[in-house]
Design a protein around this nucleic acid. Structure first.
Lengths: 207, 207
DNA sequence: GAGATAATGAACGTGATCGTATAATTGAAC
DNA sequence: GTTCAATTATACGATCACGTTCATTATCTC
């Protein structure tokens, strides 16, 4: 409901908010919450420190806002579309590639690495991430497999467990390694391995 | 070569070194390098701050010593014994259980979480960890599978890739989830799933 | 141009922690 | 008991970053 009130003063510069969050994301997820410097964020986002404090009450609140935005973005990716064609293999490969494509982005890897560490001191942040990412992915993948069982594309099985197996086959050692290597994940390499992972999955679970 | 010199003064208390490293491990891997407090480490290990500085020149050096000790412990675990019996399945399960048993220890999980984050600013730490842990595990697992191929226990395949698949099947979603949850990994649950993971692996790769 | 709010820049108080210096104490070997 | 390094308690300087204050400037509506 628009009250019709039109302020007769200088409006808030909305672009600055995104600039602050972008800079904060990089700073927080590169140096960690404690080591992140508000002044660096201000400098990078080309905004005064006071402006940051005006919009985000504390450093904690700024961090929370960054995590929130990132989680929202992630939620949108982990939604498996319903299978339209009868080619279940192609459908799995497509979804696998979408997920790999998202997870291998440098800023997503930084996010994941850092949340794991920060969750040690802020369990609620870990929970937020789990709900937006891993748990959602598992739910969607499980649904996909239950659908496949119903359609006879794979054998009857514990679909939640099978979802984990499929995820594990796709990631293999690569995502594990990438978490600790400077170069990050090799997106091209992982993409190439998705069909093979799906084939192994179908060999283990297929009719 | 023992020079035979016997100092006639108070010797270094060797137990203190371990106490310091234990306290430092907890402090570093719970709060992160930057937020870790030397005074807290001193207090917990019941040692004076000066003693810490006498033995470890800087905070960095102390951190390096902790990482070093942890990596050495890890290296020892990731060595697959040669198959003695002809029961390849049992051999895989045994090794899988050993690995799971090690990886699910709370202090190992803290270690892993934190190294991932710290490697962002200290790539050499990530490399050290990779060599002691993941790469070693992959090498051993690959060797095991190559041996199995030679003995006809599984079909011919890219054994390094297969090693990743086996690892992925064993971990499934659980290790992924555990990195972000306060409760950590459910060792019992993971142990129970190892045989199933191995069976799925054999279904995909077996003769 | 007037009014009003957003944003800036610079300075400050506060608290934490690294790393050092110093004097005093401990304790094993002789 | 003497010797002498290991160890301790305490204090200190330096640095750094959060969060605040305040005067000034920019920018929008009327």
């Amino acid at each position: 409901m628009d009250t019709g009130k039109r302020p007769r003063h200088r409006p808030v510069d909305l672009a600055k908010r995104e600039a602050i969050l972008d800079a904060a994301r990089h700073e927080f997820f590169t140096h960690g919450f404690a080591s992140a410097s508000i002044e660096t964020i201000a400098s990078v986002s080309d905004v005064s420190k006071v402006t940051i404090y005006n919009r985000f009450k504390t450093k904690e609140a700024l961090f929370a806002a960054v995590v929130d935005r990132e989680c929202t973005m992630m939620s949108a990716v982990f939604i498996a579309p319903d299978a339209t064609s009868t080619d279940f293999r192609a459908h799995l490969i497509a979804f696998g590639e979408t997920v790999v494509d998202f997870l291998t982005q440098p800023h997503v890897m930084r996010f994941e690495r850092r949340i794991g560490a920060e969750a040690e001191q802020r369990p609620e942040v870990g929970e937020l991430f789990l709900d937006a990412g891993p748990r959602r992915l598992r739910r969607e993948l499980t649904r996909l497999l239950e659908d496949a069982v119903a359609k006879g594309a794979i054998r009857h099985c514990d679909c939640a467990l099978a979802a984990g197996h499929l995820y594990g086959l796709i990631c293999g050692f690569d995502m594990f390694f990438a978490r600790f290597s400077e170069s990050g994940a090799d997106k091209h390499q992982l993409q190439k391995q998705v069909p093979d992972a799906v084939d192994r999955f179908l060999a283990a679970y297929g009719v």
